[in-house]
């Protein structure tokens, strides 16, 4: 190339300043990193770094507080929506979000999740669904697909003994307390852009005090699915998306009327 393009005026993309410089502990290709990054970018774009409080879960993303340069609080396993409820009620002018995986939100924290959504707490719940318990070694989660092998379902999930995967996002969309419910993914550029828009809308809606915003991000788990990151993304498209279809599930009422 004739000219050197690496100058500040040509910059079109760099790591958000809300992300700390710490190297992420996630496995190569894990969707958690991308989800963290877009959430950080949204906080930066809205200029709400000082007004945002995050609640970290237990699971792979237990160390999320190392990576966001905003106030963070660690919650007991599954209790992030309850902790976020407390924070939001004490400081209603702050933007409060929880960041949870499927083992945290859909298994041990089902009660907290459903009741926080039912009460219509003005928080954002980010739900990263990879259909497995990643941190503890790939055990079956409530969201594991039928027939999917995990370390505690080595012959595949059997519907008779283990039940069907739970669709938390559709479930909370039924509750009157939720305002905006959507399911996105972060494996391809177009999906990342859409997911980022969804997160941005969800944080903007928090100002309206209309109810809980719930954003599910369908993600991969290359290590525990025992695939390469690229293979796991393809597998996710073929197997996860038919059961967990992407798109908005509940839009704000005013938008529905148009």
């Amino acid at each position: 190339m004739a000219e050197n393009l690496i100058k500040p005026e040509n910059l079109v993309y760099k790591k958000s300043g809300i992300m700390t410089d710490r190297v992420l502990h996630y496995c190569p290709g894990c969707g958690h990193g991308t989800a963290h990054r877009i959430l950080a970018e949204v906080i930066e774009e809205l200029g709400i770094q000082n007004e945002t409080i995050g609640v970290a879960p237990v699971g792979c993303s237990v160390l999320a507080y190392y990576y966001f340069d905003v106030d963070m609080q660690e919650a007991a396993h599954g209790r992030a929506p309850a902790v976020a409820t407390g924070i939001k009620r004490v400081m209603p002018e702050k933007y409060v979000f929880t960041y949870q995986g499927d083992g945290d939100l859909a298994a041990i924290g089902t009660a907290e999740t459903i009741h926080a959504c039912n009460r219509g707490e003005n928080i954002l719940i980010v739900f990263v669904n990879n259909g497995i318990y990643g941190m503890t070694g790939g055990q079956m989660a409530p969201t594991t697909l039928i027939g999917m092998k995990s370390s505690t379902s080595p012959f595949g999930r059997d519907i008779k003994t283990m039940g069907s995967p739970i669709k938390m996002t559709e479930l909370v969309a039924q509750l009157p307390g939720t305002y905006y419910v959507t399911r996105q993914a972060v494996h391809k550029p177009a999906n990342v852009r859409k997911a980022k828009k969804a997160l941005k809308k969800a944080l903007e809606y928090q100002k309206l005090n209309k109810g809980t915003c719930f954003v599910e991000i369908v993600s991969n788990c290359p290590s525990n699915w025992k695939m390469t990151p690229v293979q796991s993304n393809e597998w996710m498209e073929e197997n996860m998306f038919p059961y967990y279809p992407l798109g908005d599930i509940k839009l704000p009422q005013d938008e529905n009327k148009k």
């Binding site: 393009l5 040509n10 910059l11 760099k14 996630y26 290709g29 990193g33 991308t34 550029p189 990342v192």
Partner: peptide, 25 residues
């Protein structure tokens, strides 16, 4: 190679945010 158009696709899918993108004005 030198075919980069600065579309930012690589940077926005990167889970570890390692890529910084520049594009001519």
């Amino acid at each position: 190679n030198e075919d980069c158009t600065g579309c930012t696709n690589c940077a926005i899918v990167c889970p570890d945010a390692v890529i910084t993108v520049y594009r001519e004005k």
